[in-house]
Design a protein around this nucleic acid. Structure first.
Lengths: 189, 189
DNA sequence: TGCGATCCCCTAAATGCTTTAGGCAAATGC
DNA sequence: GCATTTGCCTAAAGCATTTAGGGGATCGCA
């Protein structure tokens, strides 16, 4: 009996592919075992349980997203940076809907603190350096940007904006214009 | 053997309570049967399958949300209406996290078209009558509001804003100020 | 090269959720 | 009071999760 060469890394990566292809809720150890032509119990040498797999996919997605965002932000500032950052988010979600769903998984606090989610928050704050905001408004703005990006992508992905005029592409562009205008003119308390 | 008095209505309602108490992903026919002290197979006389239950909970949540929103909007306009509407959304999600999660379920197009989601969209548009927006900007704004509300509530619920200053309450209030300012001053193309 | 230790994947089995098929008894209507 | 309908049942199959324990492959080291 030759070995299949399973590792946690390979399993998580394959799980991420499975999520993108079939949906995050279709990610099961059984499906994963089938993909490697291996018995389900064998996976338990590499994963604590099925939740462990899902968490792994979430962490992978957060890493990938943060890497892309860092690339996109390099050398940009102001509205340019805002747009590039937002597009990374949206494009990633559309290319990898399963991974994106995983990234929205609720992680326990210490796992979250050790995840690339932290890098993400720092980058969002970096974007705001191009605008004239001081604390606590900067934090309010960080939260609002997160909400808009996540909310938009999530609604778009679930089909909320399809089959209606104007198309989502245009709205997205106008929403970014609006956010830029808002940040340049953030209302005082 | 006396009958338990099951109906689709009662099952869906109990399913919604279960969702709020234990989380939407804990809503199973088995758990529901336990709650009614009945065998699982008996539920199939009232529900097509477990997806049918989940859809039912989603539709219930959309109805309740739309009812609350309609109440909140009565007699209000402008920023008042915006704030009341947004708070309905946020409060509902915090009171009924399971139902709220259900409301975010992807429904098939015809079910969605027949749902209270439609009323919701109409109400969002009604709020914008207090601002000076014409098509297609009105549609862009509707989508943006939906994104912010859903995104904020969703991030807040998953713990994104807890354990950090300033508290979420204040950010929420400032985000509504910001949206109001933005709508009063929507950037031209 | 040989050998012991470790690792990888296996079989087996328990538990739980979903779904279908078919049956009996309670409620309903005439 | 009887036939029909309805509501809940038993039974069984399928699939996912998880644990326990075993044997063969592989690796480190003498």
């Amino acid at each position: 009996m030759t070995r299949a060469g399973l590792t946690t890394e390979r399993l998580v990566r394959a799980g991420a592919e499975l999520a993108d292809e079939a949906g995050f809720d279709q990610v099961t150890l059984s499906a994963l075992a089938r993909r490697f032509d291996v018995k389900v119990a064998s996976l338990y040498s590499h994963l604590k349980n099925s939740q462990d797999l899902r968490t792994g996919i979430a962490l992978l997605a957060l890493e990938e997203l943060a890497d892309r965002a860092a690339d996109a932000l390099a050398g940009r500032s102001g509205k340019d940076a805002l747009t590039a950052f937002a597009n990374v988010y949206r494009d990633y979600a559309r290319e990898h809907p399963g991974r994106y769903a995983a990234a929205r998984l609720r992680l326990d606090p210490e796992t979250a603190a050790a995840s690339a989610g932290v890098r993400h928050a720092r980058m969002t704050r970096a974007i705001l350096r191009g605008y004239d905001l001081t604390e606590p408004d900067q934090t309010h703005a960080v939260r609002m940007l997160g909400s808009v990006f996540h909310g938009y992508v999530s609604l778009e992905l679930s089909g909320g904006f399809s089959h209606s005029e104007p198309d989502s592409e245009e709205t997205w562009s106008r929403v970014l214009d609006a956010l830029d205008a808002l940040l340049r003119n953030w209302p005082a308390r």
